[in-house]
Amino acid sequence: MRAYPYPRPSGPVTMRVTAVRLSGPDEAREDLDTKGYSVVEQVVALGRAERSDWETARLKLSATVPAREMETKGHWSEVTVVAVLAEKATNARTVARLEPEGPANREWTGSIMLVRPDHLDRATLSVHVVATVDGVPGRIIASSERDWMVDVTADVPLRDRQLDVVTVSFARAAEWLRPFRDAPWMVDTSGRMPTVRLNTDFDGLTALVQGAGTKVESLVGEMLLSQLCTDVWTAVFHTAIGDLEIEDDGTPLLPPDWRGEVLREMLPDVVPGRSVEDALREVHARRTGDGTWAELQPRIHYAATRRAEVPKALGETVRGIERLDQEATA
């Protein structure tokens, strides 16, 4: 829990994107369809734009602040509300001031510009209320609880992301893949998002995991799929835990990208009952120091099978086979 050396209002700050205008070369303008952003998901999908050559996106925002509380308590003066658009991957940070709208100073509106070459993937958008408190100007007295995501490439405004899955012939692909020609799939965790490569040299593999074909094929496909997913989750977990940024005092930091998300998802199964930060510290300590890394493997495997829904797939397969047997004997 946090405490601050100055008073802060307790009411919530909320923010939403109300319009998005993209600008390209030669005065080209496009207003993004509201389907391109979701208040539920709090995501803006700029990849939805009709034209791909846009260079800037101006996001119109509307924020609500606990104005009445701020008025009554009276600790704060020179109140400003700012929106911050930032992306870790590009160290980009843009700040825009919002202006109060209406008499109560409850709603603040304005716009912030996203410069496309400054962004790679997903920027976060948040709102902060800044005021002079006890004679100190510029104090952050409140912030929006959940950041918006501004995704410069996605065409659907969803928070969850899918790993990339591609089909490729390992035998005829890039040279580095050829040594793996006997593997049905491979997980490459080095990109912006992990990529799963399905080896097309295995005839019918793709159709099988897609669940196409006869009943038997779809049962096998389901098992295969959960096997694949277990492999993937195990691989991404190891990548995530192996690539941690360690601070000078030895504290491992949750990575800002998909690695952090994967750890947040799987750590509660690897080290149950602890906060994610606590669990991360423990896993990192075991991996680097005290030699109990091997003892942790079953738990990582457990987390991966759970994440891959293996128990469910197995149950369904067993039931499916029984049914097939009954049909065969009937």
Binding site: Y4, P5, Y6, E55, T56, T80, V82, V84, R93, T94, V95, R97, M113, V115, R116, P117, D118, H128, V130, V136, P137, G138, R139, I140
Partner: peptide, 21 residues
């Protein structure tokens, strides 16, 4: 910086994509 918004007490000029382009 956890409690102070430097961006507000010391504003930067607005970003312009054109010079870089």
């Amino acid at each position: 910086a956890a409690t102070l918004m430097y961006d507000v007490v010391a504003q930067d000029s607005e970003r312009d994509a054109e010079p870089l382009r």
